[in-house]
Design a protein around this nucleic acid. Structure first.
Length: 784
DNA sequence: TTAAACGATATTTTT
DNA sequence: TATCGTTTAA
């Protein structure tokens, strides 16, 4: 990101140290805040990461703080990496060993350091979502639960939600019988994980929280050590993460939080909170201000990204939300182009219009393809766009596919590697016990599971109890694991991986497979990944310990001797264990799909934090965006609006909005009215594009025939105002969001309108009778 | 052991 | 509609 100087910045005295010279007054204030709790409200494109990294650099370079005294937390590995890179560019500093990372990464580090205290096996492994689900399925089966009443996915969701709330099974309030079963399942699942020596993602946080809560010396140690705590994307923290931070920066006294005086810098933007569905609590920002007694609140409102029309649209849209902390972005850039709005007759036509415009952006305006982003609300919408791009011969890249460490062949290899260290990891054992196939069928596995259950031991240890042919096959598998374990003794990581790929038969298996070449390549890539991991992490013999590390280590030792325990350094982890943790905590990039320079396709969620010269927001339809499932509750609707806000603020120069009258959804043609969000944008920022007039396409009843006529929807017919709602007749004057009256059901709010004319129907949420679908030709609804 | 057939199901996602 | 997961059949 290239930052431009705000006008005030030019007036900044040249006496400032170089580090601080490129900051605007608000950024400067944030960077040089005193050591006290503070909240930075950082608008989109306002230089948030710059403030975070410059502040750390400033604290270090002025000698106010040593590298060991910093704790900086982010949500994603990408953000953490970005921070490390930029910090490294600001200061000649060995950034390795500093506590800068994701919540999960740092909690993991803490757990490794204190696993004895926590009664965790030193070889504990991390379950990713897939692993967790298969562990849950296994337990589900073992308990013979009703498939209908308790689906594994739901149980997984339930358990994770509990953990996000910081609740152990015994703390979960039980309302009904169903809930009681779920809680019981949660308890048994935890037992299983403990037995197998595995921790899921939520557990990393919860254990770390409990570690700090229950062990005073540990908590006091870290409290003393981390004088400055910086939290990125604070609006996305969940209850547990906030509680964890509170333990690092204070203590509870009689139900009241007492800060310990650490300088906690929370950076966030309530308007960009889009993860409530996974437990994020925007309210943490207000709680933070209250509980920490925050006196310093700084708003970063100067935007360095978007032109004025785009910013104005974003500002005006988000004003429709209630209870914001309040922020108004401004820019020094010109107003730029207006936002172009296009109404397509069908999703197909929409895609073709998008591709048409993209082609012009690239051809006429010379934009690189990767500066063009096509955004949508849900992944399924990418398909039409992909088809259109493909037909046009434009290279594109879709985000959000399978990532490297999630690929089946990689997970297989990792499972063998995990079993070397921890043979009691039943999830891993089951994954590869018969892969590649070695004559251990479902029957054998059942026998093994039965034996393990009756002996109360791991599958690995139960092998000897299985008789007959099945038993000998299983014994051969265990012997294979033993060979791998012995062979890996004292070997460098790359050799261990190579050994596993060879002896497990994985390589041979995929080489023999017809379409296995890609998988073979991936397995070979795993070797490289292992090697470069070792080099980067400093496990290799080339690694040099820089002086800063020693300072940090010495300091840690000094602090540790106070509190009576040794804080082990990362080196106590074997390269293999470190690599396996790395694989679980960082799933890696998804493979590039085509050439380097490609149009970027992604959901709005995935676009958060990114920026592009040109952005298309597609599928702006009621029911899609805002999504149907969100229109019922005001909070959910506001989150959808924030999502729209995020989408808009991704664009630097050009923003295109489109919607389709007709869309194929779940095999059915659906009719959605234009999204309310489009109508919430200021008219003077918009330019409406219409289909070429006279093409004979009306608003209603467009079948596939119309779709054939897709070439060139000219931009010739420009209308400067919203199309008059001629279609309103077709929907009987109803639009989503309206208040209506029904003679029988009383008052209600229209959630959605579908179809036109006699087919039109509306979903209405009645105050007394709940939500109903009504045929508008029949139902007597009166707008209020 | 594999392929075919059936049925449920269909926001958003990082760790 | 298309995809995924499970069951069934060969």
């Amino acid at each position: 990101m290239t930052l431009q100087f705000a006008p005030e910045t030019a007036a900044t005295p040249a006496t400032l140290p170089p580090l601080l010279q490129a900051l605007n007054p608000e950024q400067l204030a944030a960077v040089t805040l005193g050591p006290e709790p503070a909240l930075i409200l950082a608008g989109a494109g306002s230089g948030k990461t710059k403030v975070l990294t410059t502040r750390i650099a400033w604290l270090l370079s002025t000698g106010q703080l040593s590298p060991a005294g910093v704790l900086a937390v982010t949500f994603t590995n990408k953000a953490a990496k970005e921070m490390l890179t930029r910090l490294g560019a600001l200061l000649p500093l060995n950034v390795r060993g500093m506590w800068i990372g994701t919540f999960h990464g740092l909690c993991h580090r803490m757990l490794r350091a204190h696993c004895k205290l926590l009664n965790l096996p030193a070889t504990f492994q991390i379950l990713d979502m897939q692993d967790q689900l298969s562990a849950i399925k296994r337990l589900h089966k073992q308990l013979a639960l009703d498939e209908e009443r308790f689906k594994p996915k739901e149980l997984q969701w339930f358990i994770n939600a509990c953990k996000e709330e910081g609740q152990r099974a015994h703390q979960v309030p039980v309302r009904d019988a169903d809930q009681r079963h779920k809680v019981e399942f949660y308890r048994l699942y935890e037992e299983q994980c403990q037995r197998e020596g595995v921790l899921d993602f939520g557990e990393l946080l919860l254990r770390s929280y409990e570690l700090l809560r229950d062990h005073d010396p540990v908590r006091e140690h870290y409290q003393r050590r981390f004088r400055h705590i910086l939290v990125d994307e604070f609006q996305d923290t969940n209850k547990l993460q906030y509680a964890w931070l509170k333990l690092l920066a204070g203590r509870m006294e009689g139900g009241r939080f007492v800060p310990a005086g650490n300088a906690v810098l929370a950076v966030g933007d309530d308007d960009q909170s889009i993860y409530a569905f996974r437990g994020a609590r925007v309210g943490n920002m207000a709680d933070f201000v209250r509980e920490f007694g925050v006196r310093q609140q700084i708003k970063l409102e100067q935007n360095y990204r978007s032109q004025a029309h785009i910013l104005e649209a974003a500002n005006r849209l988000i004003e429709h939300n209630q209870g914001r902390l309040g922020k108004n972005l401004r820019t020094d850039q010109g107003c730029g182009e207006p936002l172009r709005v296009y109404e397509a007759p069908s999703d197909y036509a929409e895609a073709n219009w998008v591709v048409d415009e993209v082609r012009q952006l690239i051809g006429r305006d010379g934009l690189p393809a990767h500066e063009v982003a096509l955004l949508y609300r849900s992944n399924a919408q990418s398909r039409v766009l992909e088809t259109a791009l493909f037909n046009a011969g434009l290279p594109y890249r879709v985000y959000g596919g399978l990532r490297f460490f999630e690929r089946a062949e990689i997970k297989h290899a990792l499972a063998y590697l995990r079993l070397i260290d921890n043979p009691h990891d039943d999830t891993s054992l089951l994954r590869v016990v018969n892969f590649p196939p070695r004559g251990i069928g479902a029957r054998s596995i059942e026998a093994l599971q039965a034996a393990a259950a009756s002996a109360g031991c791991s599958l690995h240890d139960a092998v000897s109890a299985v008789p007959g042919k099945a038993g000998s096959h299983l014994a051969a598998f265990v012997a294979l694991l033993d060979v791998l374990r012995e062979g890996s003794q004292g070997q460098p990581l790359r050799q261990i991986v190579a050994l596993v790929l060879q002896h497990s038969g994985l390589l041979a298996h995929y080489r023999a497979e017809r379409d296995g070449s890609e998988r073979v390549e991936n397995l070979e890539e795993l070797l490289n990944a292992a090697e470069s991991f070792v080099l980067q992490q400093g496990f290799g013999r080339d690694a040099v310990a820089l002086p800063l590390d020693e300072t940090a280590a010495a300091e840690a030792r000094a602090a540790a001797s106070d509190s009576g325990f040794e804080e082990p350094s990362g080196e106590t982890l074997s390269p293999l264990q470190a690599f396996l943790s790395h694989a679980a905590l960082e799933a890696g990039d998804n493979q590039a799909q085509s050439g380097q320079d490609a149009v970027q396709l992604m959901t709005v969620h995935a676009a958060k934090g990114l920026e592009f010269d040109a952005v298309f927001i597609t599928g702006l339809e009621e029911g899609l965006f805002p999504h149907d499932n969100s229109s019922a509750s005001p909070q959910a609707l506001e989150e959808e609006r924030r999502l729209m806000y995020v989408a808009i603020t991704r664009a630097r120069q050009r923003l295109y909005l489109s919607h389709a009258q007709t869309r194929m959804l779940h095999g059915q043609t659906r009719y959605h009215p234009r999204s309310r969000f489009v109508d919430e944008l200021p008219a003077q920022c918009l330019q409406w594009l219409s289909p070429k007039p006279g093409s004979g396409l009306g608003a209603a009843g467009l079948g596939k025939a119309a779709v054939g006529l897709q070439p060139a929807w000219g931009r010739s017919a420009l209308v400067s105002e919203a199309p008059s709602r001629a279609a309103a007749d077709a929907t009987h004057g109803l639009r989503a969001g309206m208040q209506v009256f029904h003679p029988k059901f009383g008052q209600g709010q229209v959630l959605a309108v579908e179809g036109r004319g006699d087919d039109a129907r509306a979903q209405v949420s009645f105050t007394r009778h709940g939500s109903k679908w009504l045929a508008l030709a029949v139902a007597k609804l009166t707008p209020l």
